[in-house]
Each structure stands twice: as C-alpha cells, then as structure tokens.
Amino acid sequence: MSARFKPGDRVRIGDHNPPGHRRVPVYARGREGTIERICGEFANPEELAYGFDGLPKRPLYRVRIKQTDIWPEYKGSANDLLELEIYEHWLEPA
C-alpha cells in the first residue's frame, strides 16, 4: 500500500461541498488534524453508493482533531479530541 500520509502528519480535511453521498461530516470539513493511524485501503463509498465498484481502493486514515479547533464554544477540556475516518482523497498536507 502506498499511503501518502503517516501517523503524526498534520493534515487538512478538504473544504469541498459536493452534492451526493459523502462520508465527511460537514463539521469536519476544512479542519486540521493529525493522522492517528492508517486503517488500511478501502473502496470509495462515494462511488459504491451509486453502484460503481469504488476502485481503486485508497488509504483510509483516522484523523485526530482537537475539539477546540472544531467548536467555537466548546465546553470541556482543551485536551479533548474528536477522531474520525477520512479517505486519502479528502486530505491535503497542512
């Protein structure tokens, strides 16, 4: 598997707003975080959702984001985290 990112890399989740089935929640778009792990390679759900095969498989990463980087009025510890899975094509280096 040739993954573009490795654990510890700073990345930015794309701020795209395409129509159709996406698995990047709006709250996460445009956010910066850190690669927590590489989950493996998987077919693209955005294509599978419309009957295509979603190939080629591409790396899926867990991205770790500080809650205070997402929610302006976050109440809780400044160390709190939100972690979610993002496919490589939605990520750029930060």
Partner: peptide
C-alpha cells in the same frame, strides 16, 4: 472530569 481527556470517535467509514 475536565482532568480526563475525552475522545469522541465518529464511526463514519469502515471502522
């Protein structure tokens, strides 16, 4: 407590 880090995992893909 705030002294404990809270990690929320959003299960949004294959995990």
């Amino acid at each position: 407590p705030d002294s404990v880090t809270l990690r929320v995992h959003d299960s949004n893909a294959d995990m």
